[in-house]
């Protein structure tokens, strides 16, 4: 990772100098974060940092084709699928982060909604089925291997899984082969998904030196170092 960061500095600046400057910025950021934390503990109100920017997204994916060969009755000839989106997240060490919330990924009109779900490690994801027929969610991904089986829409508790290992989990349906979704399990509470234009806004960030990462697909992750100071907003684009 360090190699990537150093090589991204402008020409003419030696790797050694670049490394020293980077470390100095990191140190500065750490101190800024400590000062901010102390002010917070003293009850002095400070605003958290914000990053906003834009990511160049890949071309629009081709929508899936539903196999209806032996399922004569299948609603939805044209499926709306999520266009390509990116996950933007802040990576670093975060003290005292809250317990992950419970989030949902629904099945509606024979599609997962949302089709891309970033979660913090340890998050419980519920999978309500809002379709009149069965679905059978499963994953063979190394980060999370499970098979929920077939369950009724009105069953309680709603079937769920706790995502307790970092990585990308591909969700599929054993009944409808076109259904696909991704769960990106991250080790950070600070993440967001871009909109369809690639714009994003990360708010309530702590001060300090971190790495801002952009996940585009399983093989494409972009990253840039960032030092955050409280009560400031930064713009970072990923062209």
């Amino acid at each position: 990772m360090k190699k990537f960061l150093l090589s991204s500095y402008p020409d003419g600046l030696s790797r050694r100098w670049a490394g020293s400057i980077y470390e100095a910025i990191q140190e500065l950021g750490t101190w800024a974060w400590r000062v901010g934390s102390c002010l917070g503990l003293l009850g002095i109100s400070v605003e958290a940092a914000t990053i906003e920017g834009r990511v160049s997204l890949p071309k629009v994916r081709v929508a899936p084709v539903i196999n209806q060969r032996y399922e004569i009755i299948a609603t939805g000839g044209v499926l709306g699928t999520n266009p390509p989106l990116a996950v933007v997240y802040l990576e670093g060490k975060f003290a005292g982060a809250a317990t992950p919330a419970v989030v949902q990924m629904i099945q509606r009109e024979m599609a997962f909604v949302p089709a891309l779900l970033p979660v913090r490690i340890g998050t419980k994801v519920e999978f309500p089925n809002l379709d009149p027929g069965f679905h059978n969610i499963f994953s063979f991904s190394l980060a999370k291997r499970f098979d929920l089986g077939r369950y009724r829409s009105d069953e309680k508790p709603v079937p769920s899984q706790v995502f307790d290992a970092l990585g990308l989990v591909t969700l599929r349906c054993d009944i409808h082969e076109h259904m696909r979704a991704l769960v990106l399990v991250l080790d950070t509470p600070y993440f967001t998904i871009t909109d369809e234009e690639g714009s994003f806004r990360l708010i309530d960030l702590p001060a300090g030196a971190f790495t801002l990462k952009v996940w585009l697909d399983s093989k494409t992750i972009r990253e840039r170092p960032v030092v955050l100071v409280r009560d400031t907003a930064r713009r970072m684009d990923f062209p």
Binding site: N67, Q68, R69, G76, G77
Partner: peptide, 16 residues
């Protein structure tokens, strides 16, 4: 080898 073709919501063609 299967071929599935969807033409809008109205038409669906398949072959094996």
């Amino acid at each position: 080898v299967f071929l599935d073709v969807q033409m809008g919501a109205e038409f669906y063609f398949f072959a094996q």
